[in-house]
Design a protein around this nucleic acid. Structure first.
Lengths: 267, 267
DNA sequence: GAGTGGTCTAGACCACTCC
DNA sequence: GAGTGGTCTAGACCACTCA
């Protein structure tokens, strides 16, 4: 472990390399704290699959020994990774890699909630309309950072909440990473989609950006969601990222918001 | 400063009080870390106006001396308050109370952005349609935690972005706290509304919850936003909170999303 | 150069989980 | 009781700001 810039630390591990060149007239000094470097190393291990979703990572003391830094420094790195939802700490047990196979995490990416919570509101049903391979349009290619015309997997589905159709989604995934995904596989799987992606295709959704707008339902869309044509629907365009801010999913959802709303917190 | 539960700290300040009763068979043990107590004390000082928005608070060393704890403990308390956007740290200068009078914070609560950023997209113009006192409806009273029929201030306005009307808002504020607010005062003020509330009425918006849905524009709404009647609009119902999770503003916005969208980040 | 927050360390003890 | 994360302390030094 070595500092990126100035360092007067007495440990030989820290004094190496850049100490002389730091803070001088040269190009960018770019000071990078030790814990940020540790954070990057841990992220790399997650990305490389050294520790898989749901698994226990080594204790803080072990990691401190491994990287040759104090436990406090590892602690700060893990604190940030936990804040980013990449890791989950559990006192007395250890630190675990976050996974989409967990009740508490299931609705982290679906912000639609019923206006008046009812007993059967939790009941969610999925109907897959389509799952086929197509060539990426300009827009899809740009979003997923692939070449136009590359193969992508398109999935279309409807979600029913409390018995009624509420969400229609059109999902695009890079073809290479999701080669083995078929309609039959989707039908058979009962958990969240992101849990399937994670365990079967090694792609974990870490973070996403959404663009929301209101649109009038087309005749087709209205039929799917069982509303009047022209009815206002919430359009949610989501770009999901995996480790290292790599875009891996583009999704366009249409939400019927007559009995549900999208909740958000500003702070 | 004393611990809420067990403590074997040698300092007399920490050993007092609860040490004997902690972790025993009695009622709730309720362990509360020291830094959480410090955080509460600092929050109280903010609430009481000891340090006003934009002002510098005492240094970590001073606060540590004041509360009789180590600097590290004060540091952790301030870290969390900074994460909650109540304080802002600036290396080399000190820690400041967050204020709405600042460029960088101005769009913290308005998540609407132009689809294609243009030069004049920043230009925002406001037109106040109404500013009067009415009696609180059941719904408004429940949201603002006041009694039905209490006086509330209602403000209606339209925001123009890049020359066109894009946002129509209906705002409700508790009458007592905003006694002196008039239409004339609103017209004269040029900064953000929340900045006015903060400096003139001592009410700082700290956090908010929003409920989004898509609705079809009524004839009146369509006229205000210069769209067709029936056009899909984004309805944003916002409840804003001040220090201590006290609700202080209810707002219903209608956003025209033909050239703008509401951006959100999931993590 | 004085003062501030930011980083890093080392060590002690506490709360929690599981064997 | 062993092992884990959680809290708290004390001290050193670094990066940054401003006078």
């Amino acid at each position: 472990m070595q500092r990126m810039a100035t360092s007067s630390n007495s440990s030989p591990l820290h004094a190496a390399g850049f100490a002389g060149a730091a803070g001088t007239v040269g190009a960018a000094p770019v000071f990078s704290p030790l814990y940020q470097q540790i954070k990057a190393l841990i992220t790399r291990s997650l990305q490389d699959g050294e520790w898989k979703p749901g698994e226990l990572i080594p204790s803080e003391a072990d990691l401190a020994a491994r990287y040759g830094v104090s436990q406090g420094t590892v602690r700060k790195a893990i604190d940030e990774l936990a804040a980013d939802n990449l890791l989950m700490r559990r006192q007395g047990r250890g630190t675990f890699v976050t996974t989409h196979h967990e009740e508490q995490v299931k609705f982290r990416f679906l912000r639609l909630v019923p206006d008046a919570p009812r007993g059967d509101a939790l009941r969610m049903e999925r109907r897959f309309l389509e799952c086929h391979r197509v060539r990426a349009s300009t827009e899809v290619a740009r979003s997923l950072d692939i070449k136009q015309g590359d193969m992508v997997l398109e999935i279309r589905r409807v979600l029913h909440l409390g018995g009624a159709p509420v969400v229609y989604e059109d999902i695009y995934l890079p073809g290479t990473a999701f080669r083995g995904l078929t309609a039959e596989r989707l039908e058979r799987y009962t958990g969240p989609l992101y849990a399937l992606f994670e365990s079967e295709f090694g792609t974990r959704m870490v973070r996403a950006e959404e663009k929301l707008r209101a649109v009038n339902a087309s005749a087709d869309e209205a039929a799917l969601l069982e509303v009047e044509s022209g009815q206002a629907l919430l359009s949610v365009e989501r770009l999901s990222f995996s480790y290292g801010d790599r875009p891996v999913e583009l999704r366009r959802g249409l939400y019927s918001t007559t009995h549900h709303h999208y909740r958000n917190t500003l702070s």
